[in-house]
Each structure stands twice: as structure tokens, then as C-alpha cells.
Amino acid sequence: MDAANALVAFTNYVLLPGATYGAQLALGALGATLIYGIMRFSNFAHGDTMAFGTMATILVTWLLQSIGISFGPLPTALIALPVGIIATATFVLATDRLVYRHYRRNKVPSIILVMVSLGVMFVMNGVVRMIIGVDDRQFADGARFVFTAAQFKTWTGLAEPIALRVSQVISLIAAVVVVAWLYWFLEKTRTGKSMRAFSDNENLALLSGINPERVVAITWILAAALATIAGVLYGLDKSFRPFTYFQLLLPIFAAAVVGGLGNPLGAIAGGFVVAFSEVAVTYSFRKVATYLLPDDWQPDGLLQLLTTDYKVAVSFSVLVLVLLFKPSGLFKGKAA
């Protein structure tokens, strides 16, 4: 029974939050890594793209709520999501047309593109703050729990609860669906194949008659869609605040680098590695230990490696370890 309790506590506080956060990070990192794979630069505006997409979705959600449309037990934001994706993709394609295309045609070093993305980041940040403000926004509606802590306790008779939130289930299912679709798209469709060819060898792809502008446009659309989905899932799970989204940039980059920049499979793995390290390092294992250890070995401390304030240090340490020991990432990336 003690072992079961320990396992349940571990699931509730580490496994579920880690998997949810990992799914959200993986989707964010996928977008960043796709842009890197095709256009060869780290897009610093990615966090703000997520914020923009989430903001667009929230605005549509409010509109739907005001005319009385809801999605039953599921959050209304899921109906609004396609509109949010279209709005973000439009915005991102417009920035590509107005800003990035010029540099691409002139074949500038990638670091200039990174700098340009800083400018785009400022603009997007300003736009988001001007439209929706800087405050914390909760936009999750519908049912909150698939089952609550109390229900779980009565079913199993265990002392420790698991509460399964709707947002967690949605995050996990959405991540699986999106990743499966993306895999199919990149592996099986003609467009996906041309994207991979372009990423592997640009000149050869151009010789084979692949239209670079089309590949780039599709990449931006995919990245915008992934960023919006990741942002909305994160917002449903926690809350939306422009500054928090801006700060997600670091774990997202860490995930993309850990998996190997430019490698979509790596980004998914990286997302989960970063998320689980963050949650595990900042979780106090005292509760789990009380069940597993004999009475006279009980710990006095919290058994917490670092306080939650140092979350950012965890993604960074993972990043540094990978840079030190395996700079091309766990999976083979495009970067040397």
C-alpha cells in the first residue's frame, strides 16, 4: 500500500505535470526547430509568436462566450483555436514578406537574421501588450477535472490523491495528434518531402525544382500553428501573461538544442527532457520518501534539490550539459 501511495504521489506531482508541460514545450520547440531547419536561424520571436497566437485565440473565445457558444465540458478556446492559428499565420507571413524575405534573398549570415528576429520580437511584444494588456488572463472554461482528488480517493481507497485536469488530458492528446500529423506530413506528403530535402541540402533542392518561397511559407504557417497550439495549451493549463510567454523562450530553445536544432524528433524528446528535469529537480520528494522509507529513516528536510524559483536554472543547466558533451544534440541536428 505504501508503495502504491508513493507511486500515486509521484504520478500526481511529477509525472502528470511533467508530461503536460513537456507536451507543451515539445510543440513550442517543434516550431522553433522547423524554422531553424529550413531557414537556419534561431527565431527569438518564437515566444512572442506563442503569445500572439494565444491572444488571438483568447479574443475569439471571448467573442464566442459573449454570443453564448460553448464547447460543453471542453474549453471554448478549442473552437477558437483555428481562428487564432489563421490570425497568427497571417501575421507571421506578413512579417516574412515585409522583413525576412529581403535578407533571405541577399543570403546574409544567420546571425543577422537572429538580430532581425529581435526586432520582430519587440514589435510582437508591443502589439500583444497594446491589444490585451500585461495582466494575467484565465480563459479556461468548461469542466475543470476529468476526475477530482476526492473521487480518486474514494475509488481506490488510497491516502494519496490524483487529480486529472481536463487541460492536462487535452495537452497530451493534442500533442500526440499534432506530432503524428506532422510526422505524416513530413514523411509522406510531397510538400513535406520537399521541405526535408530543402533542409538537408538547399542547393540540391533548388536544382530539383523545389520552390524555396513555397517551402519557407509553409514552414512559417506550420511554426505559427505549432506556436499557437502550444501557447493555448499552456494558457489553458496555467494562465496567459505576455511576459511569461516571452520567458518560455529559454526552455523552448533548450529543448530544441537538447534534441538537436533542426531535428523535429529531437525537439519532442528535448521538450520532455527539459520539462521532466524542471519538475523533478524542483519537486519536494519528502512525501514520496515518507511512504518508501522505514519510519526511523524519515527525512527532516523537504528533499527538494532546488526551490521552484530556480526552474530557469534547470533548463539552462540541461542546455549547458548538452553543449559541453554533445553540442549537436541528443539526436543529430543540423548545427555543427
Binding site: 544567420s110 537572429v114 523562450l249 529559454l250 530553445f253 538544442v257 539552462f316 549547458v320 553543449l323
Partner: peptide, 22 residues
């Protein structure tokens, strides 16, 4: 690669602030 220095410095800055705050 040059991007890695950017990402690493982005991280160290956040950590310094986290240390100062906590």
C-alpha cells in the same frame, strides 16, 4: 555555433536575476 552563445547568454542572464531575487 554563434546561435548557441546567444541562447547560453540568454540563460545565464535569467539565472543571475533568479539568484539575486532568491
Amino acid at each position: 555555433r554563434s546561435d548557441y552563445l546567444a541562447i547560453a547568454t540568454l540563460g545565464i542572464a535569467e539565472i543571475v536575476i533568479a539568484v539575486l531575487k532568491n
